[in-house]
Simulated assay, not measured.
Amino acid sequence: MDKYDVDLAGAEWRTSRKSQNNGGCVEYAQVGAFVAIRDSRNPDREPLIFDANEWDCFLDGAAKGEFPAPAV
């Protein structure tokens, strides 16, 4: 299956345990061999879909601080 053909109809969306209750959360869902992420404030927008390698690279980069928070 291609990541662009993932059916999200039955996806079980979860929010990180580290999220605050301010509505600014990222939700994720495991869908077969893929991980989907979406903005909890805009759940109807198309989510990002990662294959296993992309997801591992994203998590590694996040752990290394490669994605700093934007300046306010």
Rank of each mutant, 00 (worst) to 15 (best):
K18T: 08
G61K: 09
W55G: 09
R38E: 04
C25G: 09
Y28N: 03
I49A: 07
S40D: 14
Q20R: 13
P43L: 09
A33G: 12
A52R: 15
P70V: 03
D5P: 00
I37R: 00
P47H: 11
E54H: 08
G23F: 11
K3V: 08
S40F: 05
Y28C: 10
E46H: 09
V6Q: 11
D5A: 14
K18F: 12
R38W: 02
W13D: 03
A29N: 06
F34R: 03
N42V: 08
G10C: 04
D39H: 07
G23N: 03
R14C: 04
S19Y: 00
T15K: 15
E66D: 14
R14M: 11
S40L: 06
R41T: 04
G65W: 08
R45F: 02
D44K: 11
F34D: 03
C57R: 13
A71Q: 06
F34M: 13
I37V: 15
R14F: 06
C25Q: 05
G10E: 14
D44R: 15
V72Q: 11
R14E: 14
P43M: 10
V31E: 01
R38S: 08
E54S: 12
R14A: 11
I49Y: 01
A52D: 13
F58P: 04
C25P: 00
D5Y: 07
S16F: 08
E54V: 07
D60G: 14
Y4F: 10
G24M: 13
G24L: 13
S16M: 08
P70K: 02
W55E: 08
D7T: 02
N42F: 09
R17F: 08
S40M: 06
N42Y: 11
E46A: 15
G24S: 08
D44T: 12
Y4G: 15
V6R: 09
D7W: 00
K3F: 05
F34T: 04
A11T: 12
V31S: 03
W13P: 03
E54Y: 04
C57M: 10
D51K: 03
E12R: 15
A52I: 02
A9T: 15
V26M: 10
D44H: 13
P68Y: 02
E12I: 12
G32S: 06
V6F: 05
D44W: 05
W13R: 07
K18D: 05
T15M: 12
D7K: 08
R17P: 14
N53D: 15
K3W: 02
L59Y: 01
E54F: 04
I49M: 14
P47C: 09
P68W: 00
D7I: 01
F58Y: 06
R45D: 10
A29H: 06
V35K: 01
Y28H: 10
D60V: 11
D44G: 12
F67A: 06
N21W: 14
S19W: 01
F50P: 04
P70L: 11
C25I: 01
G65I: 05
A36D: 04
A52G: 05
I49L: 12
V6A: 15
D7Y: 00
K64G: 02
W55C: 09
S40C: 07
C25E: 11
